[in-house]
Computed example of a mutant assay.
Amino acid sequence: MSYTQTHKMKVREKIVGSAADAFRKKGIKEVSVPQIMKGAGLTHGGFYAHFANKDQLVAETCRKAIGETIALLKSVADHKEDDSKIQTVIDYYLSTTRRDKLEKSCILPTLSSEISRSSEEIRQTFTEEFTRFISFISGMVGNNDQKSMAIICVMVGSLLLARSVNNAELSQNILDASKLYSKALVFIKTSS
């Protein structure tokens, strides 16, 4: 790969990284291309040398951000015995750190409501990456996609609600209750 191609890929990665941080904090609609480019240390004029439009950037950012969440949770789980991997993931995901540090947290709670009203390109990429997340969690719960989806839905919804309320005690109670009941889902017998 030539220097020019390598350099262009590095710049593109900086743009996607800036977008991921910004989208996690503010969502898609509240973040402009010039803000993303500024966050990457670039001028907004160079954006179209890397992306056809903002939708393409959003799709690529979803791929990167969900991939980062999976990699992070995998690294947390890898240090545990098989039986406790999912419990460790649940504890980590539903922590006050994940709730409060938006720019480094999972993108699913922030973007899901916006994605549902986004372009087909964005929704397709989001669906592919969400499916990959389901498979990752499923591997820790006996390859049961139904359990995996239920656990993910509880975790994502709980993080969203814990961030939304303006009462610190209620927010913590949401996280604590969600940890307890997410872990209980692991042990529910299913017919599938």
Rank of each mutant, 00 (worst) to 15 (best):
Gly41Gln: 15
Thr43His: 13
Ala65Lys: 01
Gly45Thr: 13
Glu60Asn: 12
Gly67Cys: 01
His44Met: 14
Lys64Ser: 01
Glu60Gly: 00
Ile70Gln: 07
Gly46Trp: 14
Thr69Tyr: 02
Glu60Trp: 07
Leu42Glu: 10
Ala71Pro: 05
Ile70Phe: 00
Ala65Ile: 02
His50Cys: 08
Lys64Ala: 05
His50Ser: 04
Phe51Asn: 05
Gly46Arg: 15
Arg63Tyr: 07
Thr43Arg: 13
Arg63Gln: 13
Leu42Arg: 11
Gln56Met: 08
Glu68Met: 10
Gln56Gly: 00
Tyr48Ser: 11
Gln56Tyr: 01
Asp55Tyr: 02
Ala71Glu: 12
Ala52Tyr: 10
Ala40Thr: 09
His50Asn: 09
Thr61Val: 02
Asp55Ala: 09
Leu73Thr: 06
Arg63Asp: 06
Cys62Lys: 00
Ala71Cys: 11
Thr43Val: 12
Arg63Leu: 06
Leu42Met: 13
Thr61Trp: 04
Leu73Phe: 10
Ala40Val: 09
Leu57Val: 05
Gln56Val: 11
Thr69Trp: 03
Leu72Arg: 14
Val58Cys: 06
Glu68Gly: 09
Gly45Phe: 07
Glu60Val: 02
Ala52Leu: 08
Leu73Pro: 03
Gly46Leu: 12
Glu68Lys: 09
Ala52Ser: 15
Cys62His: 05
Ala59Pro: 12
Phe47Ala: 14
Gly46His: 15
Ala59Glu: 03
Ala49Thr: 13
Gly46Met: 15
Thr61Ala: 03
Ala49Val: 09
Ile70Asn: 09
Tyr48Trp: 11
Phe51Pro: 06
Ile70Ser: 07
Gln56Ala: 12
Phe51Thr: 06
Lys54Arg: 15
Val58Lys: 02
Lys64Pro: 00
Gly46Lys: 15
Leu42Asn: 05
Lys54Asp: 01
Arg63Ala: 09
Leu73Asn: 06
Gly67Glu: 00
Gly67His: 05
Tyr48Asp: 03
Cys62Tyr: 08
Asp55Met: 04
Gly67Val: 00
Gln56Trp: 02
Glu68Cys: 08
Phe51His: 05
Thr69His: 02
His50Tyr: 14
Val58Leu: 02
Thr69Asp: 01
Glu68Asn: 12
Val58His: 00
Ile66Met: 04
Ala59Lys: 05
His44Tyr: 15
Thr43Cys: 12
Gly45Ser: 10
